[in-house]
C-alpha cells in the first residue's frame, strides 16, 4: 500500500470536513449574491475561491509524502521572506548577508528532513548560529551606517518567518501517539484548521456583531466582539476535531485557546509591521487575501506555541 494510505481514517475524515466547510462557504456566498444583487461581492468571491485552492494545495502537500511536505513548507518560508525583505529598506552592503539569509531557509528545513530529525540543530540554527554569524558577514561588508537596523530586521524576519513557521514542518515528523489515532500529520491539520478557522470566524463575528475596537492603532477593523466570538467558536470547532489529537476535552479547550490567541497576536504584530512599512498587504500572490504573509501571519505565532506544548506534554 502507498505510505500515505496508512492513516486514512482521521485524515480522510478531516478532508471531508474541510470539503464540507468549503461547500458551505461557496453556497453562502452564492446565496448572498442572489439576495443582494446590487452589492459588490467580488472580493468575497475571490477570497472563497482562494480558500478552495489553498485547502487543496495544502492537503495535497501534507498527505502525499514527507519529502513533498518539507519542500512545500520550505517554499512557504522562502516566499514569506521574499515578501518581507522586499518591503525592508535594505542597503547595498546587505547584499551578501541577504544571500546567506535566503540560503538559511533550506538549511533550516534540512535539519527537519534528516532521519531522524535533528532537534538540537533545528532549535539553535537560527536563534544562535544565524544570529551570531549574519552580523559578522555584515561587518566584512564594512558599511556601519544602518548596521543595527539591517542586522536586527533581517534576524527578526528569519526568526518569525523561517524559525517560527518551520515548527509546523517539524511537527509533521512526530510519530503516532499512545492510545490515539493522532500523529504529527493529524496534529498539523488540527493546528492549521483551528488557527485559520479562528481568523475566518473572528472576521465573520466582527462583520456581523462588531462594535468596540480592540487594537485601533494597528487594525481598525478588529473588534472585541469579533475577537471573543471568533475565539470561542473556534474552540468549539476544535472540540469537534479532537480525534486529530491526543488531547482530553479540557486540554483541547486550553490548547485551542492558546493557539487562537497566539494567532490573534501574530496577526496584530504583522498589522503593526505593515503600518510601519506603510502598506496594506504584504503582497498580492493570493487573490482576495493579499500576500503569503497575510495568510500565514497567525501561524507564525501559533505554530511554535503548539509545537512546544505538544513536545513538552506529549513526548518523552
Amino acid at each position: 500500500m502507498p505510505s500515505f494510505m496508512t492513516n486514512l481514517t482521521p485524515i480522510m475524515k478531516m478532508g471531508l470536513l474541510v470539503l464540507g466547510v468549503l461547500i458551505v462557504a461557496s453556497v453562502a456566498v452564492a446565496a448572498l449574491r442572489r439576495a443582494k444583487p446590487n452589492k459588490n461581492f467580488s472580493e468575497l468571491t475571490a477570497r472563497v475561491q482562494a480558500w478552495w485552492l489553498m485547502a487543496a494545495v495544502f492537503f495535497a502537500a501534507i498527505v502525499v509524502s514527507n519529502r513533498v511536505s518539507l519542500v512545500f513548507f520550505t517554499l512557504i518560508s522562502f516566499w514569506a521572506m521574499k515578501e518581507y525583505v522586499t518591503l525592508l529598506k535594505t542597503r547595498p552592503a546587505d547584499h551578501h548577508a541577504l544571500v546567506l539569509t535566503f540560503l538559511a531557509v533550506p538549511v533550516q528545513y534540512l535539519w527537519i528532513g534528516l532521519n531522524p530529525p535533528w532537534y538540537g540543530m533545528f532549535i539553535i540554527f537560527i536563534p544562535v548560529f544565524m544570529l551570531l554569524s549574519l552580523p559578522v558577514r555584515m561587518v566584512i561588508s564594512k558599511e556601519t551606517k544602518g548596521f543595527v537596523e539591517s542586522a536586527s530586521q533581517i534576524q527578526w524576519g528569519l526568526m518569525i518567518f523561517v524559525f517560527g513557521l518551520s515548527h509546523i514542518a517539524y511537527l509533521l515528523t512526530f510519530p503516532a501517539f499512545e492510545n490515539s489515532s493522532a500523529n504529527g500529520r493529524t496534529l498539523v491539520l488540527f493546528l492549521v484548521f483551528v488557527v485559520e478557522m479562528s481568523d475566518v470566524l473572528q472576521y465573520i463575528w466582527g462583520k456581523t456583531t462588531g462594535r468596540h475596537k480592540i487594537i485601533p492603532t494597528v487594525s481598525p477593523n478588529k473588534t472585541w466582539e469579533g475577537f471573543v466570538g471568533g475565539i470561542t467558536s473556534a474552540i468549539l470547532v476544535s472540540l469537534g476535531i479532537r480525534f486529530l489529537t491526543p488531547f482530553t476535552i479540557g486540554e483541547t479547550v486550553i490548547v485551542s485557546l492558546l493557539i487562537t490567541v497566539a494567532g490573534f497576536f501574530g496577526g496584530a504584530v504583522m498589522s503593526a509591521v505593515k503600518r510601519d512599512f506603510g502598506v496594506k498587504d504584504f503582497g498580492s500572490v493570493i487573490p482576495g487575501h493579499g500576500g503569503m504573509l497575510d495568510r500565514v501571519d497567525s501561524l507564525c505565532y501559533a505554530a511554535p506555541v503548539f509545537f512546544h506544548y505538544v513536545r513538552y506534554f506529549h513526548t518523552t
Partner: peptide, 18 residues
C-alpha cells in the same frame, strides 16, 4: 523596479526581491 537591488553591479548571486 528592484532589479538593481536583486543583482547589483558587481554581484553574482541574486537576492530574491520581488
Amino acid at each position: 523596479v528592484n532589479m538593481g537591488r536583486s543583482l547589483p553591479k558587481g554581484e553574482f548571486i541574486p537576492v530574491p526581491f520581488f
